[in-house]
Amino acid sequence: MIGPSRVAELDMPGAAIEGSSTRPAQSYWNESWERLRANRIGIMAGALIVVFALIAVLAPVFSAVLTHYEPQTIDLSKTFSPPGSGHLLGSDELGRDTLTRLIWGARVTLGVALLTVAVSLTVGTAVGMMAGYYGGWFDDVLMRLVDTVLAIPAIFLFILMSILFKPTPVSLALIIASVGWGQVARLVRGEVLSVKQRDFILATRSIGARHLRLMARHLLPNVLPVLIVAASLGVGQIILIEAALDFLGLGIQPPTASWGNMLTNAESYFFHSVWLVYFPGVMIFVTVLASNVFGNAIRDAFDPRLK
């Protein structure tokens, strides 16, 4: 899950879209949207993510109204309550309410995922576009850098960086993005290279458009579909990576609740309090599943040939 398999996942949309010629016209976006709307399962998955996001954003409200517990409130007299009475999804070893912690954990999980995607896309697009557009030695240098970043076994990078920067949601996102941008850069560069050869760019160039303007106005819209697909497919994997880092003790640290560290915690007690193992895992699974399904729907919408 950590490591090169993600390369493949992010590469997929690139491979799929390569060759979808010419600059996307307005109708392309409309058609894609229509196709997405027609995909009921995809829309449902998307809706589920929106719901989770809302729960995450409104976590304080939910814990005040729904569960009546704070995520950090301990009650040593009610440890390991099974699901049901008082604690809907049970309580943990310090009597903290599992449901409340799951809700607050959603903040961490989704927040880290979104931030990671944003950072990877921004940095990766910038590097990839510049490398692809300018070419030459500039391209060589940047791409060797990308090769280097992608060749470090990601896990070492994560371990060392999570020691260097104490893992908070923000630094954790930056840590994961420090590998993710490389994938995006490769993808974008490839796309730019193919787009660059086309007539309209040459035409624009000949009428003297400035580099930056050219990139922003003409290249970016062309790589946008690739980026959207990469982003929507990447979210699920990032959630898995984040959870795995938490699980290994390198991510979000207790007492802050995250789904991953709740699982680590639960592992010690799975002989007698199995529900502690079930719920966070189910949450991760459902969220990643929804992201992947939604991601696939987006990809299908943008590239109907695979449907």
């Binding site: 950090q72 409130t73 301990i74 040593l76 070893e93 310090l94 104490k166 003790g249 640290q253 207790p254 007492p255 915690n265 010690s268």
Partner: peptide
């Protein structure tokens, strides 16, 4: 980090001291 008992103790201490007006924050390294 990774020592469950110590993690839990810090959490308990945080709450106990919060009760007497002391602001102690746990941090795992």
């Amino acid at each position: 980090a990774g020592n469950k008992q110590r993690e839990s103790m810090l959490t308990v201490m945080q709450q106990a001291w919060h009760d007497i007006g002391v602001d102690a924050t746990p941090s795992l390294i």
